[in-house]
């Protein structure tokens, strides 16, 4: 790999890192897992003057639930930690479903959830999952912390709203309203391939009523797509064949796919419909079994 020349810093504190970003004046990039940034450097698609490696900053590799059920994922929490997490498996079904589908096992060992959100690739899986869950990103800058809803965090393909001297330090998933259920399905040509289509569904239920629902789509638009109408169509209703079909139709309508070598727009829309249906059917099957 022969990237363009850059300066490399590996600060040991967030304050130092933010100072460096400030000095970098927009020509600096944060390096966390590096699974997207390093290939971009290699191909010289990205040529930052300064690389701020945050891997030496301690205390950022956590993922945990607060007492109130809020979940927090630190900036250096690797995909692999989420994949192997027992608390995720028992309490966060949508995230637990997505974690083993992120890229391939090698990438999962280094890559981070927060880094994936910052990279804002429309084919990134975590952005859909966090969108479906109604999460936000916490940014830290010279003026302190601010919370940015994920739907506002991504401003376009490969673009986020972080200021040049801000670091995304954690992703936050709000506590579920009732029982959390859901899933993530991804159509890929091979393990490690980017999603042709990915669908994240996160619903909270109380009794047999849906109390909250989020559906988000990967790879079928210029950015991650929140199928808000599809989610809304489920709220206050039980999951039935009819409500599921309506949500699946609305999600397919929300998709804005393009025809390319991964498939036609029509096909991708059909897959969105199929995956929403499959995830919700699986949720009802699981609920039936539990009952």
């Amino acid at each position: 790999m022969y990237p363009s020349r850059f300066r490399y810093e590996a600060p040991q504190s967030l304050d130092h890192a933010i100072n460096l970003l400030h000095e970098g004046a927009g020509e600096a990039k944060v390096l966390a897992g590096g699974q997207s940034l390093i290939p971009l450097l290699k191909l010289r698609f990205a040529a930052p003057e300064l690389l701020v490696d945050i891997n030496n900053i301690s205390g950022l590799d956590y993922h945990r639930f607060e007492a109130d059920g809020t979940m927090r994922v630190g900036a250096l929490c690797r995909h692999a930690a989420l994949e192997r997490s027992s608390i995720l498996a028992s309490r966060a079904p949508t995230m637990a479903a997505a974690a083993p589908l992120i890229a391939d096992p090698i990438v999962r060992n280094r890559g981070t959830l927060v880094g994936s959100l910052c990279h804002a690739d429309p084919q990134g899986d975590w952005a859909s999952v966090v969108t479906a869950l109604g999460g936000h990103v916490v940014a830290l800058g010279p003026d302190g912390r601010r919370a940015i809803p994920i739907t506002e965090f991504v401003s376009g393909p490969f673009q986020n709203v972080l200021a040049i001297d801000e670091i995304a330090v954690e992703a936050v998933i709000p506590a579920p309203k009732g029982n959390a259920a859901g899933g993530y399905l991804k159509l890929e040509r091979r393990v490690g391939d980017f999603a042709t289509v990915g669908v994240a569904v996160a619903i909270d239920t109380s009794g047999n009523q849906v109390t909250r629902a989020g559906i988000a789509l990967t790879g079928v638009g210029g950015t991650t797509i929140e199928a808000a109408g599809a989610g809304q169509a489920l709220v206050g209703r039980p999951l039935t064949a009819d409500t599921i079909e309506r949500a699946a139709n609305l999600a397919a309508e929300a998709a804005k796919p393009r025809t390319d070598h991964r498939g036609s727009a029509e096909y991708k829309r059909h897959i969105v419909h199929t995956f929403v249906t499959r995830i919700l059917n699986r949720v009802t099957e699981t609920a039936d079994k539990a009952a």
């Binding site: 191909l43 096992p105 091979r190 393990v191 391939d193 980017f194 070598h261």
Partner: peptide
């Protein structure tokens, strides 16, 4: 060329 890198030109892995 669509297939000019190993994200587009797919080599099978042990997983599939």
């Amino acid at each position: 060329c669509v297939g000019s890198n190993y994200m587009d030109y797919l080599l099978p892995t042990a997983w599939e």
